[in-house]
Amino acid sequence: MLLFANRNTKEVLRDPINLFFGLGFPLVLLVLLSIINTAIPPEANNPMFEIENLAPGLSMFGSAFMALFTGMLLAKDRTSSFLARLFTSPMTALDFLLGYTLPMLIMAIIQGAITLLASCVVGLPLSINIIPAIFMTAVVSLFFIGFGLLAGSLMSDGAVGGICGALLTNVAGWLSGIFIPIDLIGGLFKKIAHLLPFYHGVEAIRNVLFGNYSEITLHVMIVLGYAVVIFVFAIIAFRSKASGDTV
């Protein structure tokens, strides 16, 4: 399992585009939105792009790319017959599951750490809570990893790119409160955002970051609930491909 996880890590890291989207893009957004924030006059009273709100949002947003990495890798393995080769080996279902999941979890931790530490450079107070916040980012990333596993089991790498790269990241961004003030808009938009895991992922990271541990329970439960469900579907899809008629 560790050998396979190691291979998957290399496959992802040796693609420079992955490195940019995984690590660079959230930092680019951090800088741009921080600049925008400095241009917002104080009279506007708009805290949306203040670093205390931006940092957890971008940490969650960065973890959304784990869906793309996982999905693309699995889809390429499946369509190139490399996965067929591995299915005829003594590897178990758990080896496959952890082999795809573990490297992405580690990348989510690294990405979260880079984003949050870079946020300290632009004004986020440095505190010990950054460490649990980084791990909360990894917890939030579980949903995206599961989504990537599901997408990669069912779709071609081109389709995964569209669904996970374009659609999911946009939905995660717009419905999490990073780019749009959900509470301000209210109504149906707010209801939908509160039903989905993205908003709760940001809130979980934010509350941990500021030491409000009593506030995280509902948010973590929703995020983990979605992660469990998506992983169940992903495992069913993966196993059907593994034991089924085509790979």
Partner: peptide, 27 residues
């Protein structure tokens, strides 16, 4: 048993030696 599938099934971003070491370790 082992198989060489019809489509060439190698890990694209791994080197020749890394591909071989991977399979050897898996077995």
């Amino acid at each position: 048993t082992n198989i060489s599938p019809q489509e060439t099934a190698v890990a694209a971003n791994l080197s020749v030696s890394e591909n071989l070491m991977l399979i050897a370790g898996i077995y």
